[in-house]
Computed example of a mutant assay.
Amino acid sequence: MVALQQALMIRPLTPLGTHSLRFFYTGSYGVMTFPEFVGVVMVDEVEVIYCDSSIGGAEPKQDWMRKLIKDDPEHMDWYSNECHTSHNTFKTTTEILMQSFNQTGGVHIYQRMFGCEWDDETAEVNGYDQYGYDGEDFIEFDLKTETWIAPTPQAVTTKHKWDNDRAGLFYIKNYLTQVCPEWLKKYVNYGRSSLLRTALPSVSLLQKTPSSPVSCHATGFYPDRAMMFWRKDGEELDEDVDQGEILPNHDGTFQMSVDLKSPAPGDWERYECVFQLSGVKEDIIKRLDKAGIRTNRGQAGITVIRAASALFLFASCITGVFIWRRRKGEEQMFYS
């Protein structure tokens, strides 16, 4: 299981044809320049709702979400209430966690990442629910076994308590497999003109020095549901290849790279880089050709782009998210 903080900083690759609804929220303690609570809702890696404890409410971030709210005004009221309620819950929970870890001060971060994915071709649905504390996994829900996994001793008591709450387990499973996918489908329907658009990338071959790996870099594509790989003699390569993560650009598009260890001089014509984008039938193929490789300054420039994108992604992810609770009058999902 990957640490939650790492999972937030490096966006997971979404399979082709799959839509995602992800909730991130972050509670902080001892960080004077950052709100105590920040929440973000993302659809297909696009921010659609934002809130934090300093503004005291929720804000739509996309035109289609504003239209949805206009059609259903109670939708935003619900989100604003969630922001306020989650702030209070996170504040109390952080204090409990500090006691469990024998901490009396310092800087601490409590996070939750949960949501669902829906394949619009196969109708397959998948859900997940993870908690993290100070950059380490704290507890995670196993949807298959309907039990909680506790990787740290401090989470064992919480695991037993939540495992014994059959009503709570039923609610979480129902939310991840039924409610969340229905909301996701609704969001995709409202935002289809934006979310389902396609933008093809520019693809370049980059190499820092003659002995460095050759990097195939694609930038400016949308959506993020894309794949890129190297082929030799028409066969996809698994060895001598370093697959990079998909990173966001500041204009809402994405970029990614896949590196190939420098091949033997006589073999170059046998290699090609292939880019595939969800919703686009034809692949973009870039054949390995020395004359088309950008070196030194081009590679340095792309390094700066990657670094800037990583910082942008981190800034977005550290904002945290909303908790989808039971309706008013019912028990909350986080049990202290």
Rank of each mutant, 00 (worst) to 15 (best):
V2I: 11
Q6T: 13
A7N: 08
I10E: 11
R11K: 08
L13A: 10
L16D: 08
G17H: 03
R22F: 10
F23S: 09
Y25P: 02
S28V: 15
Y29L: 08
M32D: 15
M32H: 12
E36C: 12
V40Y: 02
V41S: 08
V46W: 01
E47K: 11
E47S: 09
E47T: 12
V48T: 12
C51I: 06
I55F: 02
G56F: 02
G57M: 12
G57D: 04
K67L: 12
P73R: 06
D77V: 10
S80R: 02
S80I: 04
S80P: 01
N81G: 14
E82T: 03
H84M: 13
N102G: 02
G106E: 03
C116T: 10
D119Q: 03
V125G: 04
N126C: 09
G127E: 02
Y131R: 07
Y133R: 01
D137Q: 09
T147A: 10
Q154I: 06
A155S: 09
A155V: 03
A155C: 02
V156G: 06
V156N: 07
T158W: 15
K161A: 13
W162G: 06
D163R: 07
G168C: 08
C180H: 01
E182G: 09
W183R: 14
W183E: 15
K186M: 08
Y187H: 06
N189E: 11
Y190K: 01
L195A: 03
S204Y: 13
T209A: 02
T209S: 06
P210R: 07
S212D: 09
P213M: 11
S215D: 09
A218P: 07
G220Y: 04
F221Q: 05
M228G: 10
F229D: 09
K232Q: 11
D233C: 10
E235H: 05
E236I: 13
L237D: 07
E239P: 01
V241G: 04
D242T: 15
G244W: 04
G252A: 03
L260P: 09
A264L: 07
E272G: 05
V274M: 01
Q276D: 10
V280I: 11
I284G: 10
K290N: 12
R297Q: 14
G298V: 03
Q299K: 15
G301Q: 03
T303R: 11
I305H: 05
S309V: 08
L311K: 15
F314T: 13
I318H: 08
V321Q: 14
F322A: 09
F322V: 08
W324F: 14
W324P: 03
R326D: 08
M333R: 13
